[in-house]
Nucleic acid binder design. Structure first.
Length: 255
DNA sequence: ATGGTTGAATGTCAA
C-alpha cells in the first residue's frame, strides 16, 4: 500500500501536476493540504476518473484538506467534531481499508507571539486531545500532512538562525512531543538520518530550492502497528522541480 | 535591512 501527502498550495493551480503524479505513482491514498477551494468547486471528477474516492473539508480561498483513496472511505469526519473548535478546513479523518487516516494542515502561526501563533498552540493541544479521546495507540492509524514544524536541527536549513522562530520553536517542539507521546513515530526518520532532507522551500528566497534552503515540515506519523509494516518513506522532489510548482513537495510511505 | 513570490479574489491577506 502506497500513501502520500502533498501541500498543493491550491489544488486547482496544481491539478495537472497532481493528476500526472497520481498516474505515475498510483498511490492508494493521497492526502492534499491547502486545497484553497470550497467543496462544491473541488475538481472531484478529475480524481474520480482516475479511480479515487474523495473526502473533503474545504473553505473559501484558504486552507482546505482532501483525502483521496482507491478504497471508499468510511467514518469521514471534517474538523474535530466537537462543535466548538473552528471548522476551518485543517483536519479530515476517515477510515480506509481498516486504517485511520488523519490528514491535517496545521496552522502556520505567522510570527511568534501573534494571534495566529496562539491559535497554532491551541490547535496542537486540541489535536493531542483529539487523538487521546478518539483512538488507541494499537489502532492502525496514520497522521499525515503539513505539520508546519521542523522538529529537529536537521529539519531546517539554518537551525541556529531559525531556533525560536515560527516553525522551529521550543513551544512547538513540546506540543509535537505531546502528540507523539500518544504513540506515533515519524516514519521518514525510520529510514533516513541527517540534514538536507526537506519538503518545503520558500518561494521568497531567491533560488531557495536550488540552494536547498528548505524545511522538513510535511510528515507521515504511524502508530506501532503501522510503523512495523512500513517498508519505505521518501521525499519525492520531482513535483518541486516542475514549472509552476507548489512551494512544498510530496512525501510518501509504503506498507 | 523587513526585501522577495504565489494564489485567491479583486481588498489585501495568508503563507
Amino acid at each position: 500500500m502506497l500513501v502520500a501527502t502533498y501541500n498543493a498550495a491550491s489544488v486547482r493551480a496544481r491539478l495537472d501536476l497532481i493528476l500526472e503524479w497520481l498516474s505515475e505513482n498510483d498511490p492508494d491514498i493521497f492526502a492534499i493540504q491547502e486545497t484553497k477551494v470550497e467543496d462544491d468547486k473541488f475538481p472531484r471528477e478529475d480524481f474520480e476518473d482516475l479511480g479515487y474516492h474523495v473526502a473533503l473539508h474545504g473553505i473559501k480561498a484558504w486552507n482546505g484538506v482532501a483525502t483521496l483513496s482507491k478504497v471508499e472511505p468510511t467514518a469521514v469526519r471534517a474538523g474535530f467534531g466537537d462543535g466548538i473548535f473552528p471548522q476551518d478546513g485543517r483536519i479530515i479523518t476517515c477510515q480506509i481499508d481498516g486504517i485511520w487516516i488523519i490528514n491535517t494542515y496545521v496552522p502556520n502561526g505567522n510570527t511568534v507571539g501573534s494571534e495566529k501563533w496562539d491559535y497554532k498552540m491551541k490547535w496542537l493541544e486540541r489535536f493531542a486531545l483529539y487523538l487521546q479521546q478518539n483512538f488507541r495507540p494499537d489502532d492502525k492509524l496514520l497522521w499525515l500532512g503539513d505539520i508546519n514544524i521542523a522538529p529537529t536541527p536537521d529539519d531546517v536549513y539554518d537551525s541556529v538562525k531559525m531556533r525560536g522562530k515560527v516553525g522551529h520553536h521550543p513551544d512547538e517542539f513540546a506540543r509535537l512531543d505531546r502528540i507523539k507521546a500518544f504513540g506515533l513515530t515519524d516514519l521518514f526518520r525510520q529510514f533516513h538520518q541527517g540534514a538536507g532532507h526537506y519538503t518545503f522551500w520558500d518561494f521568497v528566497l531567491p533560488r531557495g530550492y536550488e540552494r536547498n534552503l528548505g524545511w522538513r515540515i510535511d510528515h507521515i506519523y504511524a502508530t506501532e502497528p503501522m510503523r512495523t509494516r512500513c517498508i519505505r518513506c521518501e521525499i519525492d522532489r520531482l513535483p518541486r522541480e516542475r514549472t509552476k510548482p507548489s512551494d512544498h513537495t510530496v512525501v510518501l510511505a509504503e506498507f
